[in-house]
Each structure stands twice: as structure tokens, then as C-alpha cells.
Design a protein around this nucleic acid. Structure first.
Lengths: 220, 220
DNA sequence: TATATATTCAATAATTATATTGATTATTGA
DNA sequence: TCAATAATCAATATAATTATTGAATATATA
């Protein structure tokens, strides 16, 4: 084999991966799967895709070996093939934020319209947890919390927040986190909490980024 | 704006980037540009594309803001927009090697057919340079060496290797490097050197990875 | 100013990707 | 066994991507 054929084959194989990533729905699916294994139905619901279309996208990801599947009963659970997949998504998102003012603007507008300004870094959160001055809540859907969450975090899904307000301490800062830097669930929770007189802030990152840093988690 | 519209816009913007990456030629161009700024003609030559086609791919990359251009005289020089672009390529390549046995096999076959087995890590090279037991050669085309190279490396482009043999020490290990882990130029140089009785090995990584690690370089 | 060179542009045909629809398969539980 | 559910498959129309060709636009140099 000559050098050109070799290069064509190598870059061709790598492009199989980038082609699998080259779709907004599939990016959203990857971020969702970073929260933990999910059924097709759950993925379709969360991403607002039809079942058939979600299935088709999942198979595109599968044939590029970016996701793995496991069948349990009637359900087929999809998950990220390995840590590298999330790392690519992570650096991709960083690149997007660095090069695309539009994305930054979208996020800023969406967030500031919700008044939730303060965001806490993972280092700051660890300090405050040590001092006992912070209380961490996970505002993702319960299924995602159950698949894995920050150690010491309590599950308070968005739609249960109002009902669970009384269980939250007023003498500590409530730190809410969700799926990642692009996810708005934590911002929405912080907005509600602040309105109700709680001290609240969002965690800058989400569960998968926390886990990637090797920080303390509970998984099932 | 509701949450779904927000998500559609954010993932849509990020997919602009992944779509720009979703082509084997554009991946090859990115790896080439990681060596330093290049003219369209140089890129077309190195990637075996027609000028018009290379130009078209470069504009795809440009409209996704992955590359920047600068015009000097008759030539337009393209370069990577920032460090994040190379980082994405880097983690993409890692993912490819982890998930795609085909890529690994291709590289292994291509290399072992050239008998060049030993590869040296950057840490090992630094040690040997300190002890004075290694001599580093950069086997990329001279233009790429001139744009930036490992500190203390000497330029010995592939096609000049035979002619320059006499200038290489026999009492040190010759460590050859090129564009990166996928690049075969260093393997070919090592093969020739070993045949001629030199102790030689390739550096595991290439110039851009060395530079990303923050190790010593000379740039113009 | 004329000419050669570097690059881009515009048009096109061939290929590939996507969402939708309805049918099919596999599994559970009544 | 039969109905309900979860997921995939197959077919299709629409849209997007790609390589090629030849023309057009700059820029440098004679």
C-alpha cells in the first residue's frame, strides 16, 4: 500500500466518526447519554424526536461505534461507548464556545433572561461542602440522578422543586446542577429559588463533567 | 424563547462545527494546518486534491470559523483558528483509535511492514536529550520545520535523508518525528536509518502534540 | 501595461443524509 | 395465546454534500 492509499483509508475511517457527529440531534443525544444509559423512548422524549427518527439516529451512532446497547426486557438501553466519546463532545463544545459568538450570545441571553447570574466552579463547591456552607441539588429528571450523581447531592427534579422547597435549608447556599454547561435546568431552578428567598447559584458544569474530573460520585 | 427552541439553536450551531469536520479531506487539512500556516497550493499538493477542491474545503472550514486566513502577496495562508481546533482533532483521533480496530490495524500494518518498531515517548526523549544520548531530526518538509519545530531538532526532510546521512551521529540514538501519531514519515526515516546502521526510533507523537504539551519549541 | 500565478467563484451532476410513513419484529403481561 | 408496548426496518421524497469544470478576480513580475 502506498502512502496516499494509507492516508485515504485512515482519514476515511476517522471521518466515519465525524460524520456520525455531524448532526444537531445526534449531538443532543450524546449529551443526554452522557448522563447515563437511556431507552429509545426516553431519548426520543427528551430530544423531541419521533421514535423512529431517534432510533435511526441511534443506529447511525452505533454503526460508528460511538454508542453501545444492552437489551433489558422490552427496552434497549443505549450508552456512550467510552470516555473518549464524551471527551470529544466536551472539546467540541469548548471549541463552539470559543469560535461561535452566536452560541455564547444564545446562552447568555437565555440565562440572563432568567436572572440567574452567579455560577460556582467545582473547586468552590468542594470548599463550601467542606465548610458545610453549601447544599447541592440535582435538578435533572430522577432517572438521570439514579444512574449517577454528585456525591452528597439530593435529587430535586425541576418539576418537583416547588413542592420540595420546604426540605431545603435557608442557612446554606443551594447549588443546583444539571446536564452540563449548555443545560438550562439549573438556571431555571436558581431563578425560582432566588424568588422564594433562598441563596442559590448554579454549578458551572454538569454531572458528566464532574465525573470526568474524577470527583466524588454515587453510581448505581 | 422556549427551552426547545433554545436547544435547537445551540445544538444547531455546534453541528455547524461537526459538519465542517465531517469529511476525510478536511480532517487531513486540519492535521496539516496544525503544522503551521499553509497556502492553498501547498495544501492541495500535500493532500492530493485539486486546487479548486482544496479551496472549497478550506472555505467550508472557514465558514465554520475553524481556520483563519491571512493574505501575503499572491498567497493566502490558512491556519487553525485556535488551540481548541487542534484539541478537538486530537481527542477525535484518540476516539478513533479506541473504537475503530480498523484504524489501529491499518497503522500497525503500515508501520510493521516498515520494520520500525520502537517508538519513544516525549518524556523519554527529554531524558535522553538531557543525558546527551539522543539526536532529534524533523523529517517533515522544510516549510513545516521552518514554521515551528521541537527545540534542538535538526531539519532532515525525508527526501534529503540519504544525502545528509553523514551529518548524523552514530554514537547517539536518532529520534525522528513528523506530523503526528498517524503520520508515517518518521517510520520511513527510521527504516532507512536502521538499514544504514544507525540506532534510530520514532517519536510517538508529532510536532503539534509536542507543542500542545507546552514543551520547548522554536517558532518563527 | 501585459502576462503569469494563486485563488475563488458559479454551475452542475452524482452521491449521501434526513424525516416521515407504515409495516414488522420481539418481548411482556393479561 | 393475544393484546400492548418498544424498537427496528423499508421505502420514499426532499435536501445537502461533493468533485469537476471552466470562468473570473486579484497580485506580482517582466
Amino acid at each position: 500500500m502506498n502512502v496516499r492509499d494509507f492516508k485515504n483509508k485512515v482519514y476515511g475511517e476517522l471521518a466515519v466518526i465525524t460524520k456520525a457527529l455531524a448532526n444537531p440531534h445526534r449531538l443532543e443525544i450524546i449529551e443526554l447519554l452522557a448522563q447515563g444509559p437511556s431507552s429509545v423512548e426516553y431519548i426520543a422524549d427528551e430530544t423531541a424526536l419521533s421514535i423512529a427518527n431517534a432510533s435511526q439516529h441511534l443506529q447511525t451512532l452505533k454503526s460508528a461505534r460511538l454508542v453501545a446497547t444492552e437489551k433489558r426486557g422490552k427496552y434497549r438501553y443505549y450508552s456512550l461507548a467510552n470516555r473518549h466519546v464524551f471527551e470529544v463532545w466536551n472539546s467540541m463544545r469548548e471549541l463552539g464556545l470559543s469560535r461561535n459568538a452566536e452560541v455564547e450570545r444564545l446562552i447568555r441571553d437565555f440565562r440572563t433572561s432568567r436572572k440567574a447570574m452567579e455560577s460556582v466552579t467545582s473547586g468552590e463547591l468542594l470548599n463550601r461542602l467542606e465548610k458545610g456552607s453549601a447544599f447541592v441539588i440535582d435538578v435533572r429528571p430522577r432517572k438521570e440522578y439514579e444512574a449517577g450523581h454528585i456525591a452528597s447531592a439530593v435529587s430535586v427534579p425541576q418539576d418537583e422543586l416547588i413542592r420540595k422547597l420546604k426540605s431545603l435549608p435557608k442557612d446554606k447556599q443551594i447549588v443546583a446542577y444539571c446536564r452540563g454547561p449548555l443545560c438550562a435546568m439549573a438556571d431555571e431552578a436558581v431563578e425560582i429559588l432566588q424568588e422564594k428567598g433562598y441563596r442559590a447559584a448554579r454549578l458551572e458544569i454538569g454531572y458528566p463533567e464532574w465525573e470526568l474530573k474524577g470527583l466524588a460520585v454515587n453510581v448505581t
